[in-house]
Design a protein around this nucleic acid. Structure first.
Lengths: 194, 194, 194, 194
DNA sequence: AATGAATGAGGATTCATTCAT
DNA sequence: TATGAATGAATCCTCATTCAT
């Protein structure tokens, strides 16, 4: 795919880690998919763990950019919240990409990974918290503790990263998730004064 | 603990799978904790995978019973929804038990496991759907598509099973989750007529 | 050869380490010669290094016992020195045994090995030092600093452990070594008063 | 250091082989020290083994010249023998140089190396044999089979090349070796007629 | 002539599973 | 029924060697 081996390796690694998790993913398999020799991986990454971390960081960074862009395109707070949730859900259902690396795959790595996970989570939550606060200021939302709510939602969404349906975008499933979040959004809205 | 080896093995396996996930959990470790020989495990279970599936089924069955009991104890629909969510969250934060087997650990097994997961999910969702429907009938909730909402919530909750912070019951974290669900419940409630 | 796997492994390891040194020796090869599976080695020894250390310790212990026995059989100090040297030389030329592990093979292990090597050397030197001292007391030898001389000789002899001729006991070579030590013994003897 | 790459490579290789032995020495490390690219080594040497052999030949050639010079400087046979032994011991304790390549490192190469080792040994032994014969002719020594004794001593000395204590010039150790050779020299001397 | 990225065989170690006792 | 010693496939990583530039 890519003539740059580093990129090719990270792409292949993203796919393999997403499909098999950290332990089950084999370096040999990643190399084969990347179209490089097994040893070449070690020219670019210190170890399998380092490669995994690089994949996660890159994936999250790209996802965060997209998230910001999508949110900015909506004009009302409610629209922004919906855009936020939609964007996240779409990112997770995108097929072969690194964004789909599961949270619990991260935990396989143990303590070291635990250090950058909260950071990623906070990055995502900050975007949402901002939206909620603005919604409150503008009189659109009623939210007690926007920061906490934002973190809670983000955590829910990160969990979802688990590839719910191995590869097919299940319509039933999607509707369930949508319905759930519909209730959530309704819970945010300020009630018209009686 | 238990004089019945099958039970002892399942108990030990629940702990080990919960702590390490499927791949990292070693049969030897399970045998040691169960106080039996390594080979004895294969007298009672076809394979490591079969043992894992048995653990999950059993854990889910126990959790479902508890869930029903807790919900029945509340009188109003809102109380029942709150009880439902609380019960689920508690089950997940209970430390060393089998109920905490993570969804994504299930996916390590691949396609075969995917067959009984939807079933478990439906079981849990059915309980909640019932609550929502009753709430609508009684005029307490306004919910479009209670079945879908129920499935959506259950999926969120299952994901949460990921041990968010390895072993400490983090208070900050708990508050985030609680805040999030508070909004959700608010979204369920019927608005008083203006 | 041996029905006890631990013994069979140590025997095979002795041969392979002696022939190839530590790095070049492969665990697979050792297992094959021992007639056991590759994994079985790790039931009995923590690691390849631990196996190597066990071989060295055992070989040295056996060699030391034999050395003491052979020396005791001689009656005069001169005879004892000759017995000592002969025994050592024979031990080193014995074909397939662990006694032939080379000193420099030991050093491949780095610092950890350095701890028990001086000990082994001292053990051997002590036996010889005793002989020299008795020889001096009985008026047979003239030696300045018997302890140092003993250590010097033992060091020479340990070095010899290098498999001088891959597998054949070369007669020429043997005579050279014998001649050399003949001069050494002559140097020990007290000169008759003029 | 040297603008000639071939020389620079051999110098670097001498250091690295001396410090790590054949197997553990890495071509990359040698290239780095020599200040050339890894691939350039293969422009000048067929293989790692060929490079090693070249180092040994060169080191031995230089050592032999020095040996001859030192011996010639002494006037009596006894003085020459002492000079010979001193020179050899010094050569071996010289730190970072190629002369210190260990005999057993040579054997790592297996059978091929065994072909040039006896030759080197004979070269060194010839020098000493000459000294001993002259000593006998001049009535200073009593030696049966000077050639054999010479070969024996040279073999002892070659073995010593093993870096006894990784890097520190241990004074105790030196004294032991000196004491040992003192006895040897004493064994050479003709006894005054009673 | 010189480089160093790329390769892939080789090696230590782990662990689910089997089977003789 | 129960055991745990034995197995060997599978995995990560190293490094001598090649070759396109």
């Amino acid at each position: 795919m890519s003539s740059d081996p580093r990129t090719a390796i990270m792409g292949a690694a993203g796919e393999v880690f997403a499909r098999f998790g950290f332990k089950k993913a084999s370096v040999e398999d990643i190399a084969r998919r990347a179209g490089v020799g097994k040893g070449s991986i070690y020219l670019h990454f210190e170890s399998k763990e380092a490669l995994f971390e690089a994949c996660v960081r890159m994936a999250h960074s790209a996802a965060l950019s997209e998230l910001n862009a999508r949110v900015r395109r909506a004009s009302t707070p409610e629209g922004q919240v919906r855009a936020y949730i939609q964007c996240k859900l779409e990112q997770q259902s995108r097929k072969p990409l690194g964004e789909r690396i599961e949270l619990s795959t991260l935990f396989e790595l143990g303590l070291q990974a635990a250090q950058f996970i909260p950071r990623m989570l906070e990055d995502d939550a900050a975007v949402l918290a901002r939206i909620l606060e603005e919604g409150v200021e503008q009189g659109a939302f009623t939210v007690a503790g926007p920061h906490h709510v934002a973190r809670g939602l983000v955590m829910m969404l990160m969990q979802l990263t688990v590839k719910m349906m191995p590869d097919e975008p299940d319509a039933e499933l999607k509707q369930s998730v949508d319905s759930f979040f519909e209730v959530f959004v309704r819970g945010l809205l300020k009630r018209s004064p009686s």
